[in-house]
């Protein structure tokens, strides 16, 4: 009996071994991959599969080395032939990539088009990691990255929960004339604010909408957040703090004006845990009081 058990055990081991070998040989076949979406490019790099990348979209600017890849344009305004000229056999595209007809055209020439979720959440990030690892046939690297990310995310949430208070945040996404475009419900910025344990003052609006400066003042945000390039376009921290309508807000008075790189803050890629913690700290401490 024992001998038979040992035998089946050995056979099972052999089977496992064979499967591993087969798995390894499948890994060995490199693909030509075009990544459409900054967070997708980042994940491919984190998985160590960057050698397979042959193209990227305009928003894929991190890590630095990604900038060397050919740029196929903004991921919402793609052209089929340009992408096909890179001779890809796999397109990793965020669900927001388009126009959809262009992705259809690409698929109709026999190229695999993998559409990845674009929700702004930690779960969606982990799902993206798992699916990219799967299509690139590197499941171990995927598991490793996913569990490391999960741990970092848990740590980040715990440290944010420990901060206790719930500051009010206004996220300015752009500016035109006298008004500002603010991020409302169902935006990446809104999800980030929530993850950072804060309250979005513009949450009763959906999407990115123009907000009059007057209502920005009435909302009395404790912190104003924006992307670095928006800050530059608006003339810097002092300009915002001295703005006739904004200067009465607590945010302007403490100069709690948080500006970060857009992809880093809002792409919900592998740097999310870092961005969450950093943002959560900044909207509570940055500004005059901390200097």
């Amino acid at each position: 009996m024992i001998a038979i058990k040992r035998l089946t055990g050995a056979a099972l081991m052999l089977g496992w071994g064979l499967m591993l070998v087969v798995g390894a040989s499948a890994q060995a076949e490199p693909k030509r991959v075009v990544a459409l979406g900054g967070e997708i490019t980042e994940i491919v790099y984190q998985l160590g599969a960057q050698d397979q990348l042959v193209g990227r979209d305009t928003t894929s600017t991190y890590p630095e080395a990604a900038n060397e890849l050919p740029d196929v344009g903004y991921f919402r305004q793609l052209g089929a032939e340009g992408i096909l000229s890179l001779k890809p056999d796999l397109i990793l595209a965020t669900a927001a990539a388009g126009p959809p007809e262009v992705l259809e055209q690409i698929a109709s020439t026999g190229v695999q088009v993998e559409k990845l979720p674009s929700e702004h959440s930690a779960e969606s990030l982990l799902e993206k990691v798992a699916r990219i690892a799967k299509v690139l046939e590197i499941p171990e690297a995927g598991d490793k990255l996913a569990s490391s990310l999960r741990q970092q995310l848990d740590e980040a949430s715990a440290s944010i929960a420990a901060m206790g208070d719930k500051p009010k945040v206004l996220f300015i996404i752009g500016t035109g004339g006298g008004d500002v475009m603010a991020a409302g419900e169902e935006t990446a910025a809104n999800s980030l604010i929530k993850l950072a344990g804060a309250e979005n003052v513009f949450a009763d609006h959906k999407g990115y909408k123009t907000m009059s400066l007057e209502s920005a003042a009435v909302a009395a945000p404790d912190a104003i957040a924006l992307m670095e390039h928006t800050l530059k376009a608006m003339g810097g921290v002092d300009k915002i703090a001295d703005h006739p309508a904004l200067k009465l807000t607590p945010a302007a008075q403490t100069q709690r004006i948080v500006a970060r790189d857009g992809t880093y803050l809002l792409s919900f890629g592998p740097r999310l845990p870092e961005a969450m913690t950093d943002f959560a700290k900044a909207i509570r401490t940055e500004g005059r009081s901390s200097h």
Binding site: G55, T58, P70, D71, V72, G73, Y74, Q77, L78, G79, E81, G82, I83, S85, L86
Partner: peptide, 8 residues
């Protein structure tokens, strides 16, 4: 199609 390839 061609001026800004691979973008359009």
């Amino acid at each position: 199609r061609t001026a800004a390839a691979p973008a359009e």
